[in-house]
């Protein structure tokens, strides 16, 4: 496709797709700053004057700020734990010769394809029975566990691209397995590990199912269930809803914008499959 015309055409189509991915963000941002009446007159209008009333309405009707904190409180430890456990497991599966390594790995992969509800159903009952519902600890651990197989799978293909001979050189240099993990695998695999960490963050932050089931009391509710409730309460008040959506998306958007270079490179390196 060499001609100027056809390249121009490609550019235009790309712009159109780009508009569909950016416009919803703008839609949220712009309408969250308008009044309900203005929105109803024209959903495409621009804010005439900066009105933050939607935001104050949001904070006064649902404990929105707390729900963000709850989400962070669950997601951050789960991401760290899951990424750490996955990287260790992936290291063993790729570089340490052990018996049954492959069997263990394939078992993990099978589990990965289980629908979440198969796993969650008895866990929910057990958590309720032991009086731990609306408690962060089980939610953190369950999120961690559910993200380990995928993380291990991704990091395994990532660590495979580290030559075995580099690990062997380290062994000959006198490094223990633990030192090899710490000083060879972690630094070389860093981009991949960061990518997997971001993916895990997105997975957990954006999940509705587990948080809805395990943390439903107002004093533990995470941000996605809060947003889902909000849409029920505020279908008539779009600007407040948009304020909520934007704030709920902000942490992941910031994470993405801040790490886009490493993240996109990691995703493109073929690590995702």
């Amino acid at each position: 496709m060499q001609s100027r015309l056809s390249r121009g055409l490609v550019f235009v189509v790309l712009c159109l797709i780009g508009v569909t991915t950016v416009y919803p963000l703008l839609f949220m941002a712009l309408n969250s700053m308008r009044s309900t009446q203005a929105f109803e007159l024209n959903p495409f209008g621009l804010p005439t004057h900066l009105s933050l009333s939607s935001y104050s309405a949001l904070f006064s009707t649902v404990p929105f700020f707390q729900s963000i904190l709850h989400s962070l409180f669950v997601v951050v430890p789960a991401v760290i734990l899951a990424t750490f456990a996955s990287s260790l497991a992936a290291f063993v599966f790729t570089k340490v010769p052990i018996k049954m390594g492959n069997v263990l790995f394939w078992t993990m992969l099978m589990i990965m394809f289980m629908p979440g509800i198969v796993v969650l159903l008895p866990l929910y009952v057990e958590v309720a029975r032991t009086g731990l519902s609306n408690n962060f600890a089980p939610a953190i651990l369950i999120y961690t566990a559910i993200n380990i197989p995928y993380g291990t799978y991704l990091l395994r293909s990532n660590f495979r691209s580290i030559p075995d001979s580099v690990v062997e050189a380290a062994r000959v240099d006198g490094a223990s397995w633990y030192k090899i993990y710490l000083r060879v695998i972690l630094p070389i695999g860093k981009p991949g590990i960061i990518t997997v960490g971001i993916l895990t963050f997105l997975n957990i932050w954006n999940d509705l199912f587990i948080s809805l089931v395990l943390l439903h009391a107002p004093n533990t509710e995470m941000v996605t269930p809060t947003l889902a409730q909000l849409s029920g309460k505020y279908t008539s008040n779009i600007p407040v809803l948009m304020a909520g959506l934007l704030l709920g998306a902000l942490p992941t958007l910031i994470l993405y914008f801040a790490t886009a270079r490493v993240f996109i490179r990691g995703m493109l390196s073929g690590a995702v499959r």
Binding site: A85, A89, V96, M108, V119, L121, P122, A145, I146
Partner: peptide, 25 residues
């Protein structure tokens, strides 16, 4: 012992919070 210790966190979590629940289901 390293490989077994290293697999422990993943194994315990996946066994306890995935494999057992699947069995229960």
């Amino acid at each position: 012992v390293f490989p077994y210790v290293a697999l422990l966190p993943a194994a315990v979590l996946v066994l306890g919070l995935m494999v057992l629940p699947i069995g229960a289901t």
